[in-house]
Design a binder for these strands. Sequence first.
DNA 1: TCTGGGGTCCTAGGACCC
DNA 2: TCTGGGGTCCTAGGACCC
Length: 423
Amino acid sequence: MSRIYALVDCNSFYVSCERVFDPSLEGKPVVVLSNNDGCAVSRSTEAKKWIPMGAPIHKHTKDVILHDIKCFSSNYTLYSDMSARVMSVLNKFTPDIEIYSIDEAFLSLKGFERRDLQEYGEEIRKTVLKWTGIPVSVGIGETKTLAKVANRVAKKMPELGGVFSIYNNPKRDEILSRIDVSDIWGIGRAYTRLLKSNGIYSALELKNTADTFIRKRMTVVGYRTALELRGTSCIEIENVEPEKKEILRSRSFGHDVFELNELREAVSMHASRAGEKLRQQNSVARYISVFLKTNKYKDGPQYNNSMGTYLPEPTSYTPDFIKTAHMLLDNLYKPGYRYKKAGVMLAEICPDNAVQLNLFYTSRNLAGHMEIMDAMDEINMVWGRDTIKYASSGIKKPWAMKRNMVSPRYTTNWNELPITKAS
DNA sequence: TCTGGGGTCCTAGGACCC
DNA sequence: TCTGGGGTCCTAGGACCC
């Protein structure tokens, strides 16, 4: 029984989102920055010449000015909404879909063996572009890893029109011989170094490497990658999103922070956001930890530490998280450092219904707590984030991250809708 | 001045038990 | 005196992904 996978990947996704609502950006070098306006995380084709992926933008100020590169702070509200639109279009092609990241999805095309896959890929591409304005590339293959390879080929060679199928392709080995091992899904920096120092440079060479070597040096994970290159599918489509086992919330500060008070505000905000995420998946957590970091890129004394503890019982009640996180932070905090980042992690997560029986017998009014949480989540969902929030999260937030070049929330906020000119 | 954030999986090795 | 061997659980750290 053969399988067929398609990988649909949005081209320069964040940049494409910005362009949908501001067509004047078309054909120009555009860059979207990470939180705090730090690194370039999405670049248009035109910008790639000057700005490497992940580069700190402040190191490229000259290029930005010289080539008039348009820079944007990241606007996740907009990108998440556009992502949902793209995914819902893909869903119309097959319900057998795995949303792999904000800009990528795997589709199972089992049963499509006799169709012209190239043509089908083009139909997907055209439909997504027409209905959402987002350009995508489509790669098709016998396994997810081969679909990834095909997608890469589609992206690298614009003359293919954004679609490439390696499925049953008689030239498969020739294509694999031109793919660098570092470009294979699952092969990162460390494995690239290992493979190249053993004379394995291309995907074809990895495909033909002895199992014993791969298993010993790259664990079963690497072995699965090799099998997938050979056409044996080992990594299945995951239709339902698995529940998170850990939830981490953290941010760098816009400015260095010295005071415990400000750190307490930031930690309080992270704890309440982590709680929101936890409740979204109807779970409770038993373990919480807090971490604190100075700026590793700066000279001066460094401090990097974390502390965690078990909660008296599994919970999703934000005030419990805030209280415990503050206690941990108070123990963690040392005066005299320039702090750059703080975060809160929830772990030992399980579904809330798995513990409900026990909770009925606790002394606390759990039902009442949950009603409060539900009400707050509901209000914040309808009226926007932080309509209701905890006073301990601060009002002025001097530590908040920088977002100096953010575009409007075109699709999710009535006050920021795009305006069409009446002639 | 300015360097992202959020995850998962696997293994090795220590602690401990019988 | 003899200091084995099998097993589980936990944690830290390394690898990867977008």
